[in-house]
Simulated assay, not measured.
Amino acid sequence: MSNESTNPDLSIYSRPDWLAGFLRADRIRLDTLVQLVASWSDPDARDDIIEALDYLAVVVSSTQDEGTLDAAVEIVEDAAGMDTAQVPIDKTHVLRLLGELNTVAERLTRFDAGRRSVTMPHQRGRFGGAA
């Protein structure tokens, strides 16, 4: 997979066959692990986290009903006191990600007659139409 972004850790790019795209946000994984380990260091929380992780392991290794995996992950998040998985982005990131998303959208919809790119307000004319 080729990710040609100037910031691969936070990027949107196409699969090599152009049939799907990927959103990469490494910061979420980093924050998740740091929050888990930070809570793990509290002896009172550790037992709850271990129990929640053990339950998650059972769910992952078994056939599950819809929503069971999400619920098990939520139990781990609650036991570890984890924050919402989010990445702050500034204007520079937004514009770069928009460009990357447009590239992926153009590839995925290359055979769709009605495809169009997303434009930012500053790219439109005064009354919302194309500039």
Rank of each mutant, 00 (worst) to 15 (best):
R27A: 03
F22Q: 01
W40H: 09
V76L: 05
R29Q: 06
R27H: 01
D83T: 08
W40M: 13
T32H: 01
E4L: 10
A71S: 05
A71R: 02
R29V: 03
S14M: 02
T109G: 11
L69G: 11
P88I: 08
G21K: 06
V94F: 12
A71G: 04
A130D: 11
A130T: 10
V58S: 15
V37W: 13
V104A: 04
G81T: 09
A52V: 04
S61M: 14
D90E: 13
M1V: 10
A38L: 06
K91Y: 07
F111C: 10
A105V: 07
L33T: 01
L23K: 00
M120L: 10
P43G: 08
M82W: 00
A45N: 07
G128I: 00
R29S: 05
E100Q: 12
E106W: 13
E66Q: 11
D90C: 05
D90N: 14
D9V: 02
G21I: 08
H93S: 10
A38Y: 06
D83K: 08
Q86A: 06
V118T: 12
E77P: 07
N102V: 08
A45V: 04
L108W: 02
D26E: 08
G114L: 10
R124D: 07
R116D: 04
H93F: 01
L56N: 05
G67R: 10
Y55I: 09
T119V: 06
E51N: 09
G128N: 01
Y13L: 04
P43E: 12
P16I: 09
Y55K: 11
Q35F: 04
D54I: 11
L53E: 10
L97S: 02
T119R: 13
Q35G: 11
A72W: 08
G21Y: 07
D31E: 11
V76H: 03
A131R: 14
M82K: 00
E77D: 13
Q86H: 00
G128K: 01
D83G: 08
T68W: 12
S117W: 04
E106P: 03
T119C: 07
A72H: 10
W40K: 07
D17V: 04
T119A: 08
D70K: 12
R46W: 03
D48A: 06
A45K: 15
L101D: 05
I50H: 06
L95S: 05
L69F: 14
R27V: 01
T63P: 02
P16S: 15
D54C: 12
P8K: 03
W18Q: 05
S41M: 08
R24L: 03
V87L: 03
P88F: 09
F111D: 14
Q64H: 15
V73M: 11
Q35H: 09
D48N: 07
S14T: 06
Q123M: 09
R15G: 04
L97P: 05
P88A: 06
T109Q: 14
N7L: 04
H122A: 02
R15N: 10
D44Q: 15
S62C: 11
E4A: 11
L53A: 06
S41W: 01
P121S: 15
D70L: 12
R110D: 13
G128Q: 01
L98V: 12
E51A: 14
T84W: 02
I75L: 14
N3W: 04
D42I: 13
L10A: 00
V58D: 15
W18K: 09
S62G: 11
L101E: 06
V58H: 14
V76F: 09
G114K: 07
L69I: 12
L69P: 09
